[in-house]
Nucleic acid binder design. Structure first.
Lengths: 198, 198, 198, 198
DNA sequence: AATGAATGAGTCTTCATTCAT
DNA sequence: GATGAATGAAGACTCATTCAT
């Protein structure tokens, strides 16, 4: 950690990623509230106040973390969504698998934000909404492709996309799993596809 | 609030209900964290410490509150579920309407618990799981009725019930509603029913 | 310190006075900024947070302290001001002596507020302005008596009162006293009286 | 801002003046406490730590700033004071106008120092006392001229000078101005002159 | 039985200052 | 010479919980 040399944007980003990785781990273990900045700083081997050079507030850490996760997941599902060689059904299925992974990896942060997003400051809410909407739009576009091509019936695609996206939470956050995650995911996809098939 | 007069068990219970009603309202308005014991006590016209005669911890308030809400909602959907004169499909639809109401009325408490349940003490987790499972079981039983009677295909009914139950959260917690709640609920039910129809 | 028994208003007030006395002493020693709530609490033999049962903010401590001092000083100079048996000149002189005492006893708090009042929240500013104006009004009224009775010439009495009042700060806050406080006060009064004599 | 090029003493001084000008402005806008070194550095287009090449501490900035202001104002009032063609009364009046300007331009810094000077380190206190005394001495000298020439009566000239000097604060820092600044200044001068006239 | 006074542990955040490059 | 990354110490404030009366 050189002292007076401006961090390149890459270094900045890398440092942020490091912090975020640590923070996410702690948050997943103990919850956001019970994770303190002191704790994060200690795990990150830096002074409490140095955190504030990278994130203006504690909230921003989780917001940034989830924002990045969603952006990166969005890029991946976008690739799948744009793959003209698969049927909408195929693509939706693939997206769900990728999405399930994303949900599983960030389960607690995502869930915490679901519950607390309305208590974040407006800027953060807006940032999250933006990326979430973009993400949903991708899923939605595949559904619309299916409708256009006649294999899906006409549904409220905004809602359908959201139902699909949120369904992975039902799979992951259960105190009474009926089988392994993958099997449940398959079953979920099956139900939904059948639900929207023409 | 007479001093030195023993409260009968009924009064005890009634007082608990009052507190719980107030707490639920405050939590739904401001979130669990931002609702303080002082605030609850003031609204309930009692001393801070008197709350502790009814609930051992702050957590217990929300746990008990949601527990009761779920129990009471379970009783109602049980009635619907047991109504032999309707088809399973009809019953599922009615249940979803009632369930949606329940979700809407306690949205923040329910969501907060979803996010924080793993950080509650074990006893509370267990209590919540118990009632949730019982609730889910009812929904599940209707689905199974449908399967038995041949109108639903064979699915993972535990999972299906959970998907159904959680779908109301997707409807209620959206920053981008595609239409009014009831319409979205109808659409959701339609998709699911179709998804599980034989 | 009984635990669950409501403090009577008198006890409340007394407790506040105790805190205020300690706080004022610390503030006079080390300045407002360098006096911490922890320090005050420790000196007052109470938990940090108990302070907040008596004062909502740190600022409020000094505001309340000075407010009370001014109110009490105002009552005393009011008595002098209303004493019909003395000439306005006599009364002004007596008031200045009493006022000088008041200034001396609260020198650092008063000076600190002079510098920082604009950074206090509005409510506090208003409270201070109110009592200060009331205090100034009393001094002003004596000056006006003198004008009415013809012994003082017509001056801007609002300004004159303020000059008179603030002059004690010049006497007290000097790094180069030209004599003892009382002598300087006498000289100051002499100059002012001569300055406004008809 | 060339790197590695030695600054000439003139450039050094000039840079200091720039910093000081910026600091004074910020301090007068937001107060000393709320003005951070980062803020000053940013406004001065230099790195935070570069400030420390010019000033050892934050305190020194305001000390130096006010010191320079007083020295420069002292030079100006010295010119007035030495003007043999005007009467002491005339000169005092002119000085007061110039002094009022000086006070007004640095009101918050001056007031802040009044309140906090005793909490500065000794060296800074000494430096400020030195220039303040020099400044007061000039005013005092004019008063003494007046006494010598018989138009002023014999007063404690050290005190009188201080009263005169501080009176501008009463004019400027009021929450209840009785008229515009200039008029109040005129009235103040009138009262004082009359107060010390033979 | 009922209360509110008292607390202690903990929170996020700020900032002047240092120092390696 | 100039910089900004890094920090440590501190600060105000909150709140669930306890307990003496």
């Amino acid at each position: 950690m050189p002292k007076g040399i401006m961090l390149t944007p890459e270094q900045q980003t890398q440092r942020r990623e490091e912090i975020v990785a640590i923070a996410l781990r702690l948050i997943d273990e103990n919850g956001f509230q019970k994770t303190s900045m002191r704790e994060i700083a200690e795990m990150a081997n830096m002074g409490k106040s140095s955190l504030y050079d990278f994130f203006k507030t504690k909230d921003e850490i989780i917001v940034y973390a989830v924002e990045q996760e969603i952006i990166s997941a969005a890029q991946e599902i976008q690739k799948i969504a744009s793959d003209g060689s698969s049927s909408p059904e195929q693509r939706l299925r693939k997206i769900m698998f990728r999405h399930h992974e994303h949900t599983r990896q960030n389960q607690n942060s995502l869930m915490w934000l679901n519950a607390e997003i309305t208590h974040l400051n407006e800027e953060y809410q807006k940032r999250l909404h933006t990326v979430r909407h973009a993400y949903q739009d991708i899923v939605q576009s595949v559904i619309e492709d299916g409708i256009t091509s006649g294999i899906f019936r006409k549904t409220d695609t905004v809602l359908t996309a959201r139902l699909l996206i949120n369904s992975t939470l039902s799979i992951i956050f259960t105190s009474r799993p009926s089988s392994d995650l993958e099997t449940m995911l398959e079953e979920t996809i099956r139900i939904f596809l059948r639900g929207i098939m023409a």
